[in-house]
Computed example of a mutant assay.
Amino acid sequence: MAFGKRSTISDNLYDYSIMICGESGVGKTTVISELCEKEFGEDGYLLLNTGDEEGVSAIEGVTYEDVPTYKKFVEISNDIIKNKDTDYPNLKVVIIDTLDQLIDCTEKQAIDDWNRENMSNKNFKPAKTLNSVQGGFGAGYDVVFNMIYDKVRALGKAGVKVWYTCHSKTKDIIDPVSSAAYTTLTSNMAQRYFNDFKTKVHVVGVACVDRSIEAEGTGRTNIISHKEITVNKVKDEKRKIVFRDDSYSVDSKSRFAGIVNEIPLDADELIKALKDAIKNSKKNDSVGSKKTTSKKTAPIKEEKPVESDPIEDDIDDIDTPVETTVETTVEETTETPTYPDDLDAVIRKMYKECKDAELKASVKNVIAEYGKLNDVDDDGLKRIYDMMN
């Protein structure tokens, strides 16, 4: 029996999972509900107003349901799964608004379930926090994630995708490559939860306010420095959604390589960005098909790469399929390169010691295809290693 499938990229937004993070009141609930209203219609989505959230109270015309507890989330999910064809024929997307609120509700339920299941055990001490559930050591986090994602998975099988909103916060990070400290804008839920859900979605956009701040003179003089006293004032601000950030100061993500870095915080702009990203991914796929076709005729290609610069070759491999074909031919006639066992650590050291700004920028572009250096797979690491050698 032969195995192997060919993937196809859907044009439908409801075939993908999306998460929008942002501070309270920035407009994340508005933009995601407006997108769904325009794309799927009032029967095509259902926003779950979760926990203590009151985001829908100030938005006109949102299809929603209040979800004060985890049990209510389960009740609604089960009803959709059971009666999808009869009661929810047009439903395409369920929005959890917000995910961090649902996690709080689920943690309370997980603690209650654990205590109830073990109350009859001798010397059992009821858990007061999630750290005591399932024996501790982080096991409670897995319980909570599975309690939520089991329903998300079941909804997906019923033909309904789950989208998310979540609150954001700033967090101090130590860069794993340069060891420099910087501040990033990320979700305010526990990083373990965020990472778990982040791996399950196609796009994570971070809604934020971009402010222009200028120093303005007060007309008063400092009696010690004899310089004019100034104050910082906001001159301009705009709300935006960030999908990619080369400086990694925003914890966003996209599985679509062709998505724009950022857009204004607007439903129409969000729709356009997502659809353009899908189209661009399809273009990349057609390039891949050309690459496969041209590989059969590789022996008749010119042997230009032998004299060209290896760093430039690696850049060409990313951008143009023709050069990839030629390089494949060359590799077939040479020894297979060997790589260090601790390739990740070696690359970090090489990057830190590298003085070539242009080369470092090229490496960052490769890393950006995956999101972060920690997410780069073996093939990507080998590609970076080759570039830096």
Rank of each mutant, 00 (worst) to 15 (best):
R255V: 05
I263W: 01
T325I: 12
E237L: 09
C21E: 07
K295V: 08
G219M: 01
Q109H: 05
Y149N: 13
S179C: 08
K72E: 11
Y351K: 13
K71I: 05
P321I: 08
G61S: 09
R211F: 04
E107W: 05
T170K: 04
G51W: 00
S286D: 12
K283D: 05
N12W: 14
V201Y: 09
K349S: 08
D268W: 07
L274D: 07
V306N: 08
G156M: 08
L130V: 01
D319V: 14
A368I: 02
A215T: 13
K304G: 02
E323I: 07
I224D: 12
T230R: 15
K349H: 12
I300R: 14
I271A: 03
L373D: 09
K108L: 14
L130T: 01
D150N: 14
T328F: 12
T170A: 06
E237M: 15
E323V: 06
I229F: 04
E54N: 12
E23Q: 11
L130F: 00
T30F: 07
A273K: 04
E312K: 13
L185W: 10
K233T: 11
E269Q: 11
H202A: 05
N90A: 15
N121M: 09
E37F: 12
I367Q: 06
K125N: 10
V177G: 01
V143Y: 13
Y370A: 00
A267W: 05
W114R: 01
I224H: 08
V67E: 03
S7W: 10
T329N: 13
R192I: 13
Q101S: 15
D313Y: 12
P321E: 10
T30I: 04
V160H: 02
V133T: 06
K169P: 04
D314T: 13
S10V: 02
V143L: 10
P321Y: 12
L99K: 04
S179G: 06
P305V: 01
D112P: 09
M189I: 02
T86W: 07
D79W: 03
D245K: 00
Y248L: 05
D285A: 11
M19Y: 07
R116M: 04
N49M: 15
D142F: 06
K125C: 15
Y351P: 00
Y248M: 12
S281T: 09
Q109S: 11
V209A: 13
L274F: 15
K240H: 01
E262A: 10
S168K: 02
I76Q: 00
I18W: 00
A267P: 07
T333R: 15
G55K: 04
K122N: 01
F256L: 03
T292S: 13
A139N: 08
D245C: 02
N232L: 07
I173S: 03
K352C: 03
G159V: 00
